[in-house]
Design a protein around this nucleic acid. Sequence first.
DNA 1: TTCGTATTGACAATCATATTCATTTAAGGC
DNA 2: GCCTTAAATGAATATGATTGTCAATACGAA
Lengths: 131, 131
Amino acid sequence: MAEAPARRQTRQRTAVAEALEAQGEFRSAQEIYDIVRQRGDSVGLTTVYRALQAMADDGQVDVIVRGDGEAVYRQCSPSHHHHLVCRSCRSTVEIDAPDVERWAADVASQHGFRDVTHTVEVFGVCARCAD
Amino acid sequence: MAEAPARRQTRQRTAVAEALEAQGEFRSAQEIYDIVRQRGDSVGLTTVYRALQAMADDGQVDVIVRGDGEAVYRQCSPSHHHHLVCRSCRSTVEIDAPDVERWAADVASQHGFRDVTHTVEVFGVCARCAD
DNA sequence: TTCGTATTGACAATCATATTCATTTAAGGC
DNA sequence: GCCTTAAATGAATATGATTGTCAATACGAA
């Protein structure tokens, strides 16, 4: 859990964080905006975007940019992990990938690369949706 | 190499394909548009987008959606592979990842997922840019 | 309570990308 | 080569996720 800069704790940020916490799946900013409002909080859309970005910057939220370019957010566990996401219901499983970490480091090293990062996402149809 | 539907061979598509072929790096549609024009071909921006999308659909071009949501395109070898991309000069190395393929399949299977796909990209600073 | 300044939110702006629709053009048949 | 069909084009327009603006609000330290 990264040490966050001194951000003010506003009711809007709390509302966004709570809305996210109540979700298990990745959600877009627009969706989160809707969820916040459904829960009875009044927060501007711009503020939702900003709250999510701040949380992402602070390492409190994971962001994936989807194939269509839209960013989706999820409150995940703090440790480094990857995602197995159902294409249908979007349920998400956090997965560790020591083999992948090792592979990425090796490959990068073989080609003389430094300061290496990687993205890994796995998509499929979950057991429940496959039925 | 997927069997492409019956697409017409237009001078615009040829120009876009040749522009891409001359590049080793991932390039955005806007950049490819500029390159095409620099090479003396007159092609509309919309047409560039459409040509790239058609090529991507046909499996002739790889697409990555960048962290900022923008799509970038590259003409790659036909076989399944991943990319090691320099953050600075954007030079791109195609890499095989049998370990990752295996890991992805195992992980998905463990969680009962079917019809599994994955995305894996590795970013770093290449040897030349690190100096 | 006061004050400094971070934050908000409605509106406007941005920009990659997609749609529209009249026109152009590839390609197949004769 | 001509004709026909329909795929493709391209300029203008539209879309929509996201970000910027700026006056107003509100957090939190003193």
